[in-house]
């Protein structure tokens, strides 16, 4: 008799656990009606901007936006395959090609910020004083092989990496050698590596500010149009991939470029870092702020 009771208690506990797991699993599934897949870069994701903005959009449209944070190359590839409904990257030339090739319907300006050149406080290559980015890169090439420091590149064909490569090109150099390290990873990891080696690197301002406290690296660059970093958002072309949620993607674009959201974008980061991470730049915003 005792055996029976013990068995049924065990069975009850087991079914409660299974039920609980089921409920948790179900809760994980969204109850909302629509899903939008947004492919973006890791730096955008890491800045936290989307986490800040998207919930309001999701509530307004009763939808879920699933953010895929990958490298720029992969984000564009995902867009090409129609595995996302909309992409948000910062590689203008590649974005324009993307639209020209018919993968994207249209490119919309969203916001911009600046890349920064980072390095150790001791600045062995002495690029701190130079205002010009290309001069900085020239000095790096000249000094680094002997300076006991190095340059850490993302090496992943991301927006940041593409910009870095164009800087080397502008300085007329093909970087190679022991002083040039390539991580093939995202901005966060690359900053960690640069910090460990006390090396130079180039970063988007957002990731740098959010990691600033843990890093022993300083901003050594000044204002330079070469470091200008514009972000664009592109809905995937439904003519190319009929399955994409074009309507919802369009709504997201409208919402992101709207005055209210742009205002929030321009304030993002001020409270925490004392400066905003992005400057609003949609067409609508520019119209209201000439």
């Amino acid at each position: 008799m005792g055996g029976h009771r013990r068995r049924s208690v065990k069975a009850r506990i087991l079914s409660c656990v299974v039920l609980a797991l089921f409920i948790v699993a179900m809760a994980g599934c969204s109850g909302s009606s629509e899903t939008l897949i947004l492919a973006t870069t890791t730096s955008v994701h890491d800045s936290g901007l989307l986490e800040e903005l998207l919930p309001d959009f999701e509530e307004k449209e009763n939808a879920t936006v699933q953010v895929l944070a990958v490298g720029t190359g992969q984000a564009l590839a995902i867009g090409e395959r129609g595995d996302a409904d909309i992409i948000l990257v910062h590689a203008k030339a590649r974005e324009e090609a993307f639209v020209a090739d018919g993968f994207g319907k249209e490119r919309f300006d969203l916001m911009y910020n600046s890349f920064v050149i980072l390095g150790p406080a001791s600045d062995p290559a002495g690029i701190g004083g130079t205002g010009s980015a290309s001069e900085a890169f020239t000095r790096l090439t000249a000094e680094l092989p002997d300076a006991g420091s190095s340059f850490v590149s993302r090496g992943d064909e991301s927006g940041t990496h593409s910009r870095e490569l164009s800087m080397w090109e502008a300085a007329g150099i093909d970087p190679a050698g022991d002083w040039y390290r390539s991580t093939g990873q995202g901005m966060g990891s690359t900053l960690t590596v640069a910090n460990e080696f006390q090396a130079y690197t180039i970063s988007d301002i957002g990731t740098y500010l959010s990691r600033q406290e843990q890093l022993d690296l300083q901003v050594l660059s000044g204002d330079d149009p070469l470091l200008f970093n514009p972000y664009g958002v592109i809905p995937i072309n439904p003519d190319r991939h009929p399955d994409v949620n074009y309507d919802l993607a369009t709504k997201l674009v409208e919402w992101l470029t709207s005055f209210e959201t742009q205002e929030r974008i321009s304030e993002f980061g001020v409270a925490e870092f004392g400066q905003s991470l992005f400057t609003a730049d949609s067409e609508e915003w520019r119209a209201s702020n000439p």
Partner: peptide
């Protein structure tokens, strides 16, 4: 750190190349 030429191995390279498309 998946550093090209020094610590990049088959597995980490697979991750990197996939991420890069």
């Amino acid at each position: 750190g998946n550093l090209k030429g020094s610590t990049q191995v088959l597995t980490t390279a697979t991750v990197q190349f996939t991420r890069m498309g």
